[in-house]
């Protein structure tokens, strides 16, 4: 067999393989982890985070502005401490509120940020004061039944 032809085929094979890897890396996957250099971290305390997971998106007005970096349990306040890693190019006022929401009826949970009106911006390691817990279906049904029962009693 001719050596140069063989080399050509192997070269094509290697290029195609690397091309496939690049295709997977660029077109199929995404580096969802924001690198530490151009991002800052803020924390938010929640009484109930529902099914929130690390790496879940942080959205504001529906746009992904960061990711959930860490979820801890504070054993003194008995609350969940959620660390949010936000991209540097998005700055939020100090009185921004954070809520745990669900995308769709059964979709994954994410943190929604709603900007306030403060002129000062959130800085690294700041804490978001106003938070809203995840909606727990059992509590909702309980409230609904309680309301219905009261309606019945009023009649």
């Amino acid at each position: 067999m001719n050596r140069t032809v063989l080399d050509l085929w192997v070269g094509l094979f290697v290029i195609a393989g690397i091309g496939a890897l690049l295709f997977l890396a660029l077109k199929v996957g995404s580096t969802s982890t924001i690198n530490a250099a151009d991002s800052y971290e803020v924390t938010a305390d929640f009484q109930n985070i529902g099914g929130l997971k690390p790496r879940a998106p942080v959205k504001s007005a529906g746009v992904v502005v960061g990711r959930v970096a860490d979820i801890r349990f504070d054993n003194e306040k008995y609350e969940a401490v959620v660390t949010l890693r936000l991209a540097n190019r998005y700055a939020f006022p100090k009185d921004t509120s954070a809520a745990i929401m669900t995308s769709g009826l059964l979709g994954e949970q994410y943190v929604g940020l709603e900007a306030g009106g403060d002129s000062q911006k959130l800085k690294d390691q700041d804490r978001i004061m106003i938070t809203q817990d995840a909606v727990v279906l059992e509590n909702l049904i309980g409230q609904f039944l309680y309301g219905k029962a009261q309606e019945g009693a009023a009649k």
């Binding site: 890897l21 997977l24 890396a25 077109k27 199929v28 996957g29 995404s30 580096t31 969802s32 982890t33 790496r55």
Partner: peptide, 19 residues
């Protein structure tokens, strides 16, 4: 199709582990 794919496939977690 493509954006849902990109939203859920992570480079290190999924592609690199596959490699």
């Amino acid at each position: 199709f493509w954006s849902q794919m990109q939203g859920s496939v992570d480079f290190t977690q999924d592609i690199l582990n596959g490699v």
